[in-house]
Amino acid sequence: MLHLLVFSVFGLICVAGAINLLVQRHPINSALSLVVVMGSLAVEYLLLGAEFVAAVQVIVYAGAIMVLFVFVIMLLNAGVEERSKGSRVAMLFGVPGVLIGTVLVAWVLLARSGTGNVAVGALPGPPKVIGWLLFHDFLLPFEVTSVLVLIAIMGAVVLASHPGSKQPDKREG
């Protein structure tokens, strides 16, 4: 009972945040509603027992990636978004399509997916076990993603630095 209550409260917050992201015209409001979505998703992870995933979700997603988004919005001083022709076509055809698809998927899931019930903390994912898995069963993917991150860092530095402008003169320090 309590489980269902917590699940539905945070699920509703989640969906409300996601819809608010779509409705808001200003990117900073969208970014903040996405932070709300991520925070309530962390609670859902906790309900499923994935404590480490929940913590990392808050630290990495809400605390780092979204801060980066907010930072870029502030840096570029992004204003209210303007609606143009392309979006009207997408709204006419895309949105109903997505809606129909979602309803279909939801119906299949609810009516005949054959999945059981889950209790609170159904599958605990303590950091120790996750770490063991990462460094044994998933060692190769782990190393590959580390290379990916390295490439991303270098790419970001190259892309965001002013094209053509020379490195500023080395001062002291």
Partner: peptide, 16 residues
């Protein structure tokens, strides 16, 4: 106890 499909539906709604 909550049916697992609820979680999946929530995930589907977010994706949509």
């Amino acid at each position: 106890m909550v049916p697992l499909s609820y979680y999946l539906v929530l995930s589907g709604i977010l994706f949509a």
